[in-house]
Design a binder for these strands. Structure first.
Length: 551
RNA sequence: GCCCCCAUAGCUCAGGGGAUAGAGCGCCGCUCUCCGGAGGCGGGUGCGCAGGUUCGAAUCCUGCUGGGGGCGCCA
């Protein structure tokens, strides 16, 4: 008996009460069934009587009593208590609760999947870091979080395209090219340029890999050579770092292509046709104030060059024309001011902001050393990159640490601490639990605990009941993580599962002690052990973290 | 001045209206004659302040205080 099944039973019971005329009014469409913190309050509890009592013309306790009688007729329900203002506390039989264990093992990698996003085509854009340097800690957070979110969406039946917008157009790229050229000539970095060590490396590789003698070309031509070759090298490096991090994008979209294909002009003309474009002060504007923006936005500057927003205008249209009904962007907090004009743009096309376009704002990652914040500056070359982080702690620890917090909170990363004491990362607690399930299963097999019998009525220990209840929550947790776009829910849940599993392990043996014979309870517990392994593995998969068999 | 995020245990953080607010780390004890001790058990009154909504608020609303980020014909 899972909480979902109980919820359905309660809805059915309400339906019967309404049919018999015992209650009259608006029936709820869903009920919340939760695991109470206090076991005296049952295996499961619902507040439905308090929430619906008034609507059904009853006080909460009266409604609870009616439901109590109905629920007692449900198979597997042993006892129903009414507590406090109208909580309904439900006790189910061990046998009924334990049936789930077999369901989980039989479902295997399919356990936890759902259909809550079935049929949705989602374009998820994340990282999209400028190709003027390696990916830093902030970008790494979006890589971990975005990829995990994509996996969670997919687990709910959505079709997801992971997309990276590559800003290879505009003034920043010129600065990048000038920085490379200056470095190659042994000059100091330009005032507004980039100065990290990677600039020297890239400049050197450009010199080595380009056929022509760049340094003897005229200034403008030399810079153009460095731009082309430098961006390509940087792009390849970024892709490789991401790949090594376990994040592969389906589409790397080049901003420049929007200009080359004429998509930018097309997009502006489309908006002009819709009456949202006007000319003023020598520039071309989008009347974004018509759609909630606090000021109108220039799309073509008075010098004839496109403003940055023009690219996004065309890019969004491109995504929509590729058939995505939901375009989700993950942006850093330093870009949150960009949200109103993006939403206005979406509305200007006649789309629904918040539905067709959704923007998730993630807070910054701070580098901390010995408790002191360290300023990171790309220009000064003091950034900590994705590779630095992975070198220090490994992929699993890095991904887990970045994915286990809400993106609404800024995050402090202390490299020294993480690299010295990797046990600080709860990922090991979770992975250890998984490895343990594998070793237990291996041991069981060698001691003739085969799992041939499965009698859930034998799972009577309180830690077994707790573990089973915890395992039952995976589908709901994943569905909520998808709904709220919050992968960290999965991580936190896994930590709870691991805790329940460890406690169970310490109380209940799968293999018999010494020479004692194998009994049905041992075989049955093997199923529970394996069910825990399934949940841990499936959950870690959603976070892009490995589930090792031994550590 | 305006906009966004945050404030929960010594530290890092969960908690999307429910009952006695949790986890990890750190600290102090305890714990295996046998499945992995990277484990388990015990040790704690901490929701920034003030109002409001509600049967019920860490959670929703308003104001305040403090911290972070942002407000270009830059990208």
């Amino acid at each position: 008996m899972t909480p979902e099944q109980l919820a359905a039973a309660i809805l059915a019971a309400l339906g019967r009460l309404a049919e018999s005329g015992a209650v009259a009014g608006e029936l709820p469409t869903e009920v919340v069934v939760e695991r109470p913190k206090n076991r005296d309050h049952g295996d499961w509890a619902t507040n439905v009587a308090m929430q619906s009592g008034a609507k059904l013309g009853k006080n909460p306790r009266e409604l609870a009593q009616l439901l109590q009688a109905e629920l007692l007729t449900v198979s597997g329900v042993e006892k129903v208590d009414i507590a406090g203002p109208g909580f309904i506390n439900i006790f189910v039989s061990n046998a009924s609760a334990g049936e789930l264990v077999k369901t989980i093992v039989d479902a295997g990698t399919g356990y936890g999947l759902g259909q809550s996003l079935s049929g949705q085509r989602i374009n998820l854009e994340f990282v999209s870091a400028n190709p003027t340097g390696p990916i830093h800690l902030g970008g790494t957070r979006w890589a971990a979080m975005g990829d995990s979110l994509a996996r969670i969406f997919e687990s709910q039946g959505a079709k997801v395209t992971r997309e990276y917008y590559f800003n290879d157009h505009g003034a920043q790229i010129d600065r990048f090219a000038r920085s490379l050229l200056a470095k190659a000539k042994g000059l100091p970095a330009p005032e507004d340029g980039y100065g990290g060590e990677y600039i020297a490396e890239i400049a050197e590789r450009v010199l080595a890999e380009t056929a022509v003698d760049i340094l003897n070309l005229p200034e403008a031509q030399a810079q153009e050579e460095f731009r082309k070759a430098g961006v390509d090298l940087m792009f390849a490096e970024i892709r490789e770092s991401l790949h090594d991090f376990g994040v592969d994008f389906d589409v790397y979209f080049h901003e420049n292509s929007l200009y080359e294909s004429g998509a930018v002009v097309k997009a502006i003309e489309k908006l002009r046709g819709l009456g949202h474009i006007f000319e003023a002060e020598g520039a071309t504007w989008l009347r974004s104030t018509s759609f909630g923006d606090d000021r109108d936005r220039v799309v073509i500057k008075s010098d004839g060059e496109a403003a940055y927003v023009a690219g996004d205008l065309a890019y969004y249209l491109d995504k929509r024309e590729r058939g995505f009904d939901r375009c989700i962007y993950i942006l850093g907090a330093d870009h949150h001011g960009y949200v109103p004009r993006m939403m206005a743009m979406c509305a200007a096309y006649g789309d629904q902001p918040g539905t067709n376009m959704e923007i998730l704002i993630g807070q910054m990652v701070n580098l901390v050393r010995d408790g002191e914040p360290v300023r990171m500056s790309k220009r000064a070359g003091t950034v900590v990159t994705m590779e630095d982080l992975v070198d220090a702690v490994g992929n699993d620890a890095a991904r887990y640490a970045l994915a286990r917090s809400s993106i609404n909170s800024s995050l402090d990363i202390d490299l020294e601490q993480l690299s010295k004491k990797t046990n600080d990362n709860p990922v090991f607690y979770v992975q250890y639990a998984h490895a343990r399930t594998k070793q237990v299963a291996k041991n069981a097999a060698s001691l003739w605990v085969t799992g041939a019998e499965f009698d859930p009525a034998l799972l009577v220990h309180e830690t077994e009941s707790e573990l089973i209840a915890k395992l039952s929550e995976l589908p709901r947790v994943v569905a909520q993580a998808a709904e709220f776009r919050e992968p960290h829910r999965v991580a936190r849940y896994l930590e709870e599962v691991a805790g329940s599993f460890h406690r169970w392990y310490d109380n209940c043996r799968v293999t018999p002690l010494g020479d004692k014979p194998v009994e049905p309870v041992h075989n049955t517990r093997l199923w529970l052990n394996n069910a825990a392994g399934v949940v841990l593995a499936n959950g870690l998969k959603l976070l892009g973290v490995s589930a090792p068999e031994r550590m």
